[in-house]
């Protein structure tokens, strides 16, 4: 059973982490992208916070839908449609399930559909996929988050802006995987999985 209280706490903590690490995300994105990942997501996080404060949600689907639409509208770049699609995918799933592994899986499917990327292409998917596997297996913890993130360093980007750099994308952590790592750290801290 996934409670709306814990989920909204999750998203709140995610926003705090993004905001606090804005410069770090920008720096990672400067190395292999266009340098605005942290600023874009911070803008989105502020808008999500505002939107969430306006409403009193009684179901996960409506909450996820608002988060998704707000991110699509406010974040821009590639991360707006990608994170936005993820939450809208979760919103759709939430109408029939409140199992966190299933919800996250629906989010990942939406990301893959939108970005047409797969595991191993140095994207946020390389954080999402192993985390979801661990949630399913009951072994989700900080190590899974950290190791998945670190694994993107030696990957060569074949999707997204970083792919234009070819081999020169190797040696850098993927910024989308880093922001996703914050998302899953927030998931741990909010206690959503144990709930």
């Amino acid at each position: 059973m996934t409670s709306i209280e814990k989920v909204s706490q999750w998203i709140e903590i995610f926003g705090e982490k993004i905001t606090a690490n804005r410069e770090h995300l920008n720096k990672l994105d400067t190395a292999i992208g266009d340098g605005d990942h942290g600023s874009n997501l911070t803008r989105g996080a502020a808008a999500v916070k505002e939107k969430a404060a306006e409403n009193d949600y009684d179901n996960l689907a409506n909450f996820f839908k608002d988060v998704g639409m707000t991110l699509v509208s406010k974040v821009g770049g590639a991360s707006g449609p990608l994170y936005g699609s993820a939450f809208m995918g979760m919103a759709k799933k939430a109408k029939e399930s409140d199992d966190m592994a299933e919800l996250l899986e629906a989010g990942l499917e939406a990301i893959q559909k939108r970005g047409k990327a797969d595991v191993g292409e140095k994207t946020m998917i390389d954080e999402w996929a192993p985390v979801i596997e661990s949630v399913k297996a009951g072994s989700f913890n900080q190590d899974v988050i950290d190791e998945s993130l670190e694994s993107t360093r030696e990957m060569k980007a074949t999707k997204g802006r970083a792919s234009y750099l070819g081999d020169r994308s190797i040696g850098h952590i993927d910024p989308g995987a880093q922001s996703s790592a914050y998302l899953f750290e927030a998931l741990l801290e909010a206690g959503v999985i144990d709930g």
Binding site: V72, A78, G80, P81, L82, G84, R114, G115, G160, R161
Partner: peptide, 11 residues
């Protein structure tokens, strides 16, 4: 022009 334009357009 570039990839993220496509994603926003597709949405």
């Amino acid at each position: 022009d570039l990839g993220s334009a496509k994603m926003n357009l597709e949405m």
